[in-house]
Every structure is written in structure tokens, then in C-alpha cells.
Design a binder for these strands. Structure first.
Lengths: 333, 333
DNA sequence: AGCTTCCATCACACGGGTGTCAAGGGTGTG
DNA sequence: CACACCCTTGACACCCGTGTGATGGAAGCT
């Protein structure tokens, strides 16, 4: 239960502490023989440099903090993959913390990450107030993913929700649909752009938008469909605010004896792993998640290492993934 | 971009550095007036104690490291929730890292966590070799979740997979099923106990086990079903190794024109959020995930604070969640 | 032999805190 | 007024490294 220090390694390798330090920092001015001896001793003792002491002494940090608002959402896992890939390449470590969807807990997570004095912070879809973010941004570089911000010291990476919705509408229209409803994400992140994209795309095609209030859950999607059926307002195609909502919608449609896509086409949004399940096989809009992560890490490193100060705003292009929940009205030929 | 130190806070609050330190450590021997002044100054400056310097100086750590083998799996998110809950209660912070399912990356994640010299480590379903774990266990307390270990210095938290499989078999038998196949998880974690539980439960009921090789994916589940159909060996009920596999199985059954549960009943394992979707509504075995996390954190804290040294082995009871994919043979009455 | 190079060591000042201890200040009490 | 008590301060060693500059030894070159 005793963690070895440089001193121990030096002793074991029969060299000075300074030399161990040089080896650990990959200094070129160490003979191969000694380097090997030191590394061997370190290995035997299970020694690895004390990250905290190191960063304290070197006044630098090779750690990037990542705050994931909701660990339950696999969306973020792929973003983290992208971050991790770039960070590792560039010799940075990442530490992750989670906000559990609650602003209070997220605030704590932020505090906690900050207390490690990382080189920078990546916040994935944070729900804390903007003031908390801009305050933190005074202390270190921050990149926001899937949340926009006007704070000039903060970089943002988002997908173009308007374009995504447009892609979906264009796809449905090209299949021959004219009555296409949007199950709206309400207050949810990115619900606004998606709704706007839907409305403008419909109008561009000379069609009448039909926005149905809903939420980012499967239960809400089902409810929205039931209300449409009750009102006799069911269209031939549905654009859901996200995949969960779409799956709920499909479920309610099938409960009502309607077939997807024969009677009604459904498009989701996000291309979660759920959508790819053959049992679901949902046509949906894909966001380049790993790319989000890579760009976020790169943007952060530019600030950390190259001292960039002007903010960067990335708006990535989503893409359409056609699966088996969309077909021409009346069903596939 | 300048992070304040205790010095700055002291200056602003008009007190000594020592007093700021006392306040930050919640020392009782500080007057309320000064305490408030210090906290106010800290708040204004956005100061929070430097976790590294603190742990360095105090030779203690209030950080628990958590290694999540796969962030994509929501299973772990709930375990983390449990860990977080207990850790926060007890004044500990957590830092998370992910192994991305690859032993090499996991090893790096472990190194990285270790370099922060946390008070202890919780590994969620790690895939690194046991030697790496026992080596790390020489340096700090370690708790393993969803992976067993014989290393005596390590605590383990697992679900009783045998019992879970037994619950599923009992449920199917009580519905009247006699021909029940198990789609096996192969090399996957916990596949062994589940298979054993299935076989012994079948034998206990005087039935013949039918173990079909498969994997923890929906594609594998579908393949297994197709091969069963081809062989004319399709039973009236299926116990899948996990939920994904079950969903794939259902999908293949439906593709073959069979109805679930009317023609074939299907039981999953894990009770992932997928199973709860109304579109899926899968009967499955639930593991007390948050409880895993809580127990893991508690076990770790017992070692960290109370100096416990004898290992603890928790085997938690899974439970059956009945939804809409199981019914008597021939369908619901 | 004298010179440069390369390696290695030593010593020391940091970094941002903790922890202890002696000593100083203010206040309330008898 | 003396005294005790509680807050507060200053000083210093310590944690585990980094980084720098001075010093020394050995090998290599001319």
C-alpha cells in the first residue's frame, strides 16, 4: 500500500533522483543504458510519475477535463471516444466527470474537475447556467459540445440541426410525402434548430408545417401519435425530434394497427445505437459524434498549446441514414 | 486565464493565508465572520482549493478513481450513479476514465488514474489481465464490479448470474414451457454463470437443456434464431444471454413470421433501458446496478478510512421483470 | 596533453497547499 | 486589573516532483 516515489526508483536503479526525473520526462540527454535501468526499476516498483506533483512543479498540465452531462446517453460515449483519440495522440490524459442531468450535480462536477487544474475543459451538452461557464472560462480554455454559447472565450462544436431536419424533410418529400408532421422536442437541447429546419424545409417545398408538441422520450412520442390519431390529424410521415421519440411513435402506430413504413413513415434524429438495431431499423439523422470529440479536443489543444484566443465555432453537417421506417406513401413498391 | 491561489483569497478577504487554509478545511476554530468573509472572497475570485497541492500536502486523497470498461454501455452509467451518490455523501470526489473495451486502452486508463494517486479505485468490468490488477492493488485499495477475482486484496461486487438464469427458467416453466433454449454469451463476462444457472434449472425441472452458441449482440441473437429455424429445432421459449441478443432474436422471429410472445416467448438479461422501451417491452432479468455502485463505494471507503484488509465478496440477487415478451405456449389466454 | 562533449550528480528555488507550533491580538470574566 | 480564552498570524518543514545552473568525471578527438 506504499506508492513508490522517484527516490525509490533512483535508489533501486542506482542513479540520482535527477536522472530519474530526466528519464520520466523523456529527456534526450540520458544514455540508453541508464534509461533502460531506470525504466526497469520503475516497472518493477510499479512506479508512475505523480501527476499532481508533476503538474504542480512544471506549472503545466497534460490533463483535459471532460464533463459529460449524462452518462446514460451513448451519444456522449462516442464523443468521448473522439476526444480520447486526439488527446492520447497528443500526449494528454483525460479525466471524466458526470453531471447526471442535474444542474446542481453538474456544478459540483465542474468544481471537481476545476480543482485538478486541467489544461482545459470540454463540456458535453452542459445544463449549468451560462454564467457558471463564463466564470470558469476565465480560468482555463473551455470547449462546449452540443450547446451553443455567445461567450467569446469559449469554443463551440454543434451539429447543424436545421440542416439535419431539412435532410429528413427532403427525403420524405422525395418519397412522395406531402403531409409530414414534426414531433417537437420542446425545451430540449437542439430542439429549436430542428424545429426551424423542419418548418423552413416544409415551406420551401410549398407544404404546410404541422408541429406537434412532444419531448425527447419514447413515452412522449407515443402520446403525440395517440393525440394525432384522436384528432384525425395523422399525416403520412413523421419527423421525430430524436430516436427515442421516434421509437415511441412507431410503437403507438403499431398499437393502432398501422404499419411502419407501409401506412406511416417515421424518421428519427441522432442515429443512436437503438436506431441501428434490426428490430428497430430506424431511418434517422446521423451526427458525426466522434468528429465532435476530435474537433473539441483539437480546438482545446489549440488554445492550450498554441495560445489561440479567438473563439472557434464549428457547425458540422449531419447526414441521412436510410433504413426501414421510411417508404413512399402507401408503402414500398 | 490566471487561476487564483489561497494567497489571492487571503489578500482579498484581508486575512492571512493560514486562515484561508483553515476555512477551506472546515476547521471549527474560525469565527463565523471571518469564515464568511473568506468564502465570499473565494466565491468572487472563483477560487477552489487546488486538489493536487492539497492531496500532496496532506498526504491523503479524497478522490476515488473509476474505470469504466465501456462508456457505451448504459449499464455502467447506473453503477456510476450509485458510486457517485455514496462518494458525494462521504465527501469524496470521483474521476472517471474509460477503457474503450480494449485491454491496451484500459491499461492506459488505469495508469492515468493511478497517476492521480486517488484514495482507491473501482474497476467496472475490467478486461485487463488479473496481474495488472493485483499489481495495482499493491498500491491502493481496489474494488471490482462485474468481474470476479481471487486476488485477496481486492473486493468484488457481482450479480448472481446463476440465480438470474434460474429465475428466468422458473418463470418460463411456470408459464407452461418445456422446450426452452439458451442463446449463450460465449466468452462474454458473466456468460458462464448464466449458462450454468440455465442448465441446472432446466435439469431441476426435469427438462433437457438446449444451449445455442451465440454472443452479446443483436446480430448474433438473430443468427442463432435463424439457425434454430433451419434445423427445425425452434423451442417455445428463448432465454437470451442479454437484452441485445434478445432483441435480435425477436427480430429474426418476426422476420420468420412468428409472433412474440404468441408463438415464442423471449427473456433477456440485464434490464437495459432498451428493454423498457414500449416498442420492445422485453421480459428480462434486472441487476441492481445502482446498488452495485453504492456497495462498491462503501467497500472502498471501508478500506480507505477504516483500514479494512480482509476482502469482501458481494453477490447480489437479480430479479425478474415481466413485460410483454413472455406468455404461455400458444399465446396469452 | 589539452580540449570538447556527453552523462550524471548536486543543490536549490520553486509550485500550492497542509500541519504544527509559538506567539500575538482582542474580548469577556471575576 | 489580571487572567483566561478564543482567533488569528507568521514561520517553517513537508509533500513530490520540475527546472536550472554549477560541477565533476569519463570518453573521444586532435
Amino acid at each position: 500500500m506504499v506508492r513508490p516515489t522517484m527516490e525509490d526508483v533512483a535508489l533501486r536503479a542506482g542513479v540520482s533522483r535527477a536522472l530519474v526525473s530526466l528519464v520520466m520526462r523523456n529527456s534526450p540527454k540520458v544514455s540508453e543504458a541508464r534509461r533502460a535501468a531506470v525504466l526497469k526499476a520503475a516497472e518493477e516498483l510499479g512506479y508512475s510519475p505523480h501527476a499532481m506533483a508533476r503538474s504542480l512543479a512544471s506549472r503545466t498540465s497534460t490533463v483535459l477535463g471532460v464533463m459529460v452531462s449524462d452518462l446514460h446517453n451513448a451519444f456522449f460515449a462516442e464523443v468521448v471516444d473522439g476526444i480520447d483519440e486526439v488527446a492520447r495522440e497528443q500526449g494528454f490524459d483525460i479525466i471524466i466527470n458526470t453531471g447526471g442531468r442535474s444542474p446542481a450535480r453538474e456544478r459540483r462536477a465542474l468544481e471537481s474537475l476545476l480543482s485538478f487544474r486541467p489544461a482545459g475543459l470540454i463540456l458535453l451538452s452542459p445544463v449549468v447556467p451560462a454564467t457558471a461557464i463564463s466564470k470558469a472560462a476565465e480560468q482555463l480554455p473551455i470547449v462546449l459540445v452540443a450547446r451553443s454559447s455567445r461567450v467569446s472565450t469559449v469554443d463551440t462544436i454543434n451539429d447543424d440541426g436545421e440542416q439535419g431536419a431539412r435532410l429528413a424533410v427532403d427525403h420524405l418529400v422525395s418519397l412522395g410525402h406531402k403531409r409530414i408532421a414534426h414531433l417537437d422536442g420542446g425545451e430540449g437541447t437542439q430542439a429549436g434548430p430542428r424545429r426551424r429546419g423542419y418548418v423552413t424545409a416544409m415551406e420551401a417545398h410549398g407544404l404546410t408545417p404541422q408541429v406537434v408538441p412532444s419531448e425527447y422520450t419514447d413515452a412522449a412520442g407515443a402520446r403525440a401519435i395517440r393525440s394525432l390519431i384522436e384528432d384525425g390529424a395523422l399525416p403520412t410521415a413523421i419527423l421525430s425530434c430524436n430516436d427515442f421519440n421516434a421509437v415511441g411513435a412507431i410503437s403507438a402506430l403499431e398499437d393502432a394497427g398501422l404499419r411502419v413504413p407501409h401506412d406511416v413513415s417515421v424518421v428519427g434524429y441522432d442515429n443512436t445505437s437503438l436506431a441501428a438495431l434490426r428490430h428497430v431499423s430506424l431511418t434517422t439523422i446521423d451526427q458525426p459524434r466522434a468528429e465532435f470529440g476530435r474537433l473539441a479536443a483539437l480546438a482545446l489543444l489549440q488554445r492550450v498549446r498554441d495560445g489561440r484566443t479567438e473563439p472557434v465555432r464549428h457547425l458540422l453537417n449531419p447526414s441521412l441514414v436510410v433504413r426501414n421506417t421510411t417508404a413512399p406513401p402507401g408503402g414500398p413498391r
